[in-house]
């Protein structure tokens, strides 16, 4: 564990915990953006430059803006009068805590064989493009189809229903 990792991990956890805890939804999205940026920096620290910049483009850019638009269109900005947590928050919190306990226990008991950091791989964007166009070309095409279908479906679902002509 190094100092940059600790700083980035603390930043990410703080941003994401604040996003799940704050009352005002707009503040939640701002904290979430901080958490996503911290995750992108962690990817950069793991020598995955392309994934790090994709994370910034997709999450910090697109998903956060999409969530802000959803908040705007459902008029749920501003502090809420009712409590922010649902009526069954104790059960939900217990489930999440139990999941973390089991995962941490399993991680603590295993992963002893992969302690050495391998030498830094020489991964250029050119190689990633090459792999996407040769070895992974079928998944890429399926992903394009999935994104097209999902976005058309989202527009159809969210579209204002017109009153039927009688």
């Amino acid at each position: 564990m190094t100092i940059p990792f600790l700083i980035l991990a603390a930043l990410t956890i703080a941003g994401i915990a604040a996003a799940m805890y704050l009352r005002n939804l707009v503040h939640c999205i701002l904290a979430l953006t901080l958490g996503f940026a911290g995750l992108a920096a962690l990817y950069l620290q793991l020598d995955a430059q392309f994934v790090g910049f994709t994370q910034i483009l997709v999450y910090v850019g697109a998903v956060a803006i999409l969530a802000v638009f959803a908040i705007m269109m459902t008029r749920s900005a501003g502090p809420m009068a009712q409590p922010v947590f649902s009526s069954s928050w104790i059960k939900g919190g217990c489930v999440a805590g139990a999941v973390f306990a089991v995962l941490a226990w399993a991680i603590d008991r295993s992963a002893t064989s992969l302690e050495m950091l391998p030498p830094q791989p020489e991964v250029a964007v050119r190689q990633i493009g090459d792999a996407l166009m040769r070895r992974f070309v079928l998944p890429l095409e399926i992903m394009g189809l999935l994104l097209t279908a999902a976005l058309i479906g989202a527009v159809l679902i969210a579209m204002q229903e017109k009153p039927e002509m009688q």
Binding site: M1, T2, F5, A9, T12, I13, I16, A17, A19, M20, L39, L42, L46, Q82, P83, V84, F85, S86, S88, W89, K91, G92, G93, V95, A96, G97, V99, F100, L103, A104, I107, D108, A111, T112, L114, E115, L117
Partner: peptide, 25 residues
């Protein structure tokens, strides 16, 4: 090890996300 700390961080992220999905209104 370093890998263990990354895995612990990601399990903490998963748990915070799960807690948010289960408890927020």
């Amino acid at each position: 090890s370093s890998l263990t700390s990354y895995l612990l961080l990601s399990s903490l992220l998963f748990s915070i996300g799960l807690a948010g999905a289960l408890t927020r209104r």
